[in-house]
Computed example of a mutant assay.
Amino acid sequence: MTRHAAIRAQIEARILSGALRPGDKLPSEAELVAEHGVARMTASRALADLVAAGLVVRRRKAGSFVAVPRAEESLFGIPDLRATLGPGHAHAVLHRATRAATAADKARLGALPRGARVLALQVRHMAGAVPQAIEDRLINLAAVPEAAAEDFGAAPPGSWLLERVPWTEAEHRIGALAADAATAALLAVAEGAPCLVLDRLSRREGLPVTAVRFTYPGDRHAFTGRSTPRLREAPQPGMRIS
């Protein structure tokens, strides 16, 4: 492994393990030179590779920082609902419980070891006086133990997690349902009204972090996305396209 790749791998491992968190400042090029005994160009290239991978942002005159995962432009990223709803956003934690993972919890989060514990939350999101979403979330406490002591009064769970926990993989499922009586009451819609449902599972290096279901009033929300076709490389001699 080259010297710049080794430096990159060391920093990347600390970011993905959570030892370095979103917003944390990284050592400067000069500090990396002194620590690893390499040329400044080598240190600069290691940081540039981390920037290209989306793990680090470099701010002029300020330094390099662990990137906060952002995906507002992409339907299949992990957007911050608080930012999406804007200045009028407010939230209330309706239910909070810490428990041993049930069979239903394991079905949502995936493989969990015996004795795993989860934090279950239900949160209602508002824009002004109008309900906008119900959030039903499970947090794997083995991945995020500090969540057990958080009351999520200052920030909703999704925003809190985005600011603290790096994620490396997310799965999404979009569906629809007719509001039952409890959902209708929370969202201020008629019973049976159509609702959009987004289920998301996020992981960090294969470890389940959180599973969440957002239920939105169908007449107040829409999912949008943009994509471009991926150009296929021309086949080379000896290559087979399948």
Results as ranks from 00 to 15, higher is better:
residue 72 E to G: 12
residue 14 R to A: 07
residue 89 H to G: 05
residue 70 R to Y: 03
residue 6 A to P: 05
residue 66 V to E: 02
residue 54 G to Y: 01
residue 99 R to P: 15
residue 35 E to L: 13
residue 64 S to E: 02
residue 90 A to F: 00
residue 75 L to C: 13
residue 119 L to T: 00
residue 129 A to G: 15
residue 106 K to L: 10
residue 57 V to C: 03
residue 131 P to N: 11
residue 84 T to S: 07
residue 16 L to W: 02
residue 123 V to L: 13
residue 34 A to M: 09
residue 35 E to A: 15
residue 121 L to M: 13
residue 108 R to C: 12
residue 91 H to C: 00
residue 110 G to Q: 10
residue 13 A to H: 03
residue 128 G to L: 05
residue 133 A to M: 08
residue 81 L to D: 02
residue 103 A to S: 13
residue 11 I to M: 02
residue 76 F to M: 14
residue 115 G to I: 02
residue 105 D to E: 06
residue 25 K to A: 15
residue 38 V to E: 05
residue 21 R to V: 10
residue 40 R to Y: 06
residue 100 A to H: 09
residue 82 R to I: 03
residue 107 A to W: 03
residue 25 K to H: 11
residue 96 R to S: 14
residue 7 I to H: 01
residue 120 A to M: 04
residue 15 I to A: 00
residue 95 H to Q: 13
residue 116 A to G: 12
residue 114 R to V: 12
residue 75 L to T: 11
residue 29 E to M: 10
residue 132 Q to N: 12
residue 22 P to Y: 05
residue 27 P to R: 03
residue 58 R to E: 06
residue 134 I to G: 11
residue 99 R to D: 14
residue 49 D to H: 12
residue 68 V to K: 10
residue 76 F to V: 11
residue 31 E to Y: 06
residue 50 L to S: 00
residue 9 A to F: 05
residue 103 A to K: 06
residue 21 R to H: 13
residue 104 A to P: 08
residue 6 A to L: 11
residue 114 R to Y: 06
residue 57 V to N: 06
residue 40 R to L: 09
residue 103 A to I: 04
residue 18 G to M: 03
residue 61 K to G: 14
residue 132 Q to D: 13
residue 109 L to D: 12
